[in-house]
């Protein structure tokens, strides 16, 4: 059967995507060091705390013994620190206020590139996307057999990817309100004040982590050639499939 190479991800998108991964990881890790200086958030219903950030098991993970080996034996050295939370607020702040520049600049370049290259057409949802995203979810849960028609991404992906970009913007904006609550008092007051800006900043982080978990699971399910396309930019597709209008690329 005849094949075609399809260019799926431009070079810029691939670099911006992969560079964002360690940057976001550093923002979350340094954010945790800051949070641990005053760990107050939890999920409360009628004054009863269902879940506290973070519960004791979060720190116990690194102590679990597997036939003489502990989880941190397989992980970087810092994972040991989970079991014995150090008071490292100064380090957390200095790392956070260094990597914030790189995280924000990387994000801004990504958004600008997406707009000017036309890549936004593959990522943004339209009003009908919400209905189709439900069908995609039902398909992923093996409840319905057929996937709705799609381009590079299905409608659930469009909503997820657009949301995570908006979350990134939200983290930068709430972060600015916490960083300069006097000079940007108008921004903090838009969020209901400094305390609420801080609360939103924290919850956005939790949702980044949830996005990351779902993203990795979906990438594993989608398989190797999909993952490879995020590294090389290309994927192999069947040539005899009817094609909608397309641009020729050199392979």
């Amino acid at each position: 059967m005849e094949k075609q190479l399809e260019k799926k991800h431009p070079l810029a998108i691939r670099w911006l995507h992969w560079v964002n991964f360690p940057l976001l990881a550093m923002m979350i890790w340094s954010g945790l060091l800051i949070y641990w200086a005053n760990a107050v958030y939890g999920i409360r219903i009628f004054g009863y705390e269902l879940f506290h950030f973070f519960p004791p098991w979060f720190y116990e993970i690194s102590k679990v013994d597997f036939w003489g080996y502990k989880i941190p034996d397989y992980l970087p050295a810092w994972s040991y620190e989970w079991s014995n939370i150090p008071f490292r607020l100064a380090e957390g702040i200095s790392l956070h206020f260094f990597f914030m520049w790189l995280f924000a600049i990387n994000g801004i370049i990504y958004v600008l590139y997406t707009i000017f290259s036309g890549e936004w057409r593959a990522i943004v949802p339209v009003p009908g996307s919400f209905k189709r995203a439900i069908l995609v979810t039902l398909h992923d849960l093996h409840i319905v057999k057929k996937l709705p028609p799609q381009g590079k991404y299905n409608d659930a992906q469009r909503i997820a990817y657009t949301s995570v970009i908006l979350m990134g913007a939200g983290s930068v904006i709430t972060g600015l309100a916490i960083y300069k609550p006097l000079q940007l008092a108008w921004l903090a007051s838009l969020m209901g004040g400094y305390e609420w800006a801080r609360w939103m900043h924290f919850w956005l982080t939790i949702f980044f982590v949830l996005f990351f978990v779902v993203h990795v699971v979906q990438v594993i399910i989608a398989g190797w050639s999909n993952f490879r396309s995020m590294i090389t930019g290309y994927d192999i597709v069947d040539a005899d499939k009817p094609q909608i209008e397309h641009a020729e690329v050199k392979a």
């Binding site: 059967m1 005849e2 094949k3 075609q4 190479l5 399809e6 260019k7 036309g118 057409r121 593959a122 943004v124 949802p125 339209v126 009908g128 996307s129 189709r132 709705p148 028609p149 799609q150 381009g151 590079k152 409608d155 469009r158 192999i236 597709v237 040539a239 094609q243 909608i244 209008e245 397309h246 641009a247 020729e248 690329v249 050199k250 392979a251």
Partner: peptide, 23 residues
């Protein structure tokens, strides 16, 4: 009801080739 179609998303494809060559 294809979002890609509504937004005029284009595919970028090479000319057809044998499976071996593509690989």
């Amino acid at each position: 009801d294809n979002t890609a179609r509504i937004l005029n998303e284009k595919r970028r494809l090479s000319s057809p080739m044998s499976e071996e060559e593509a690989r």
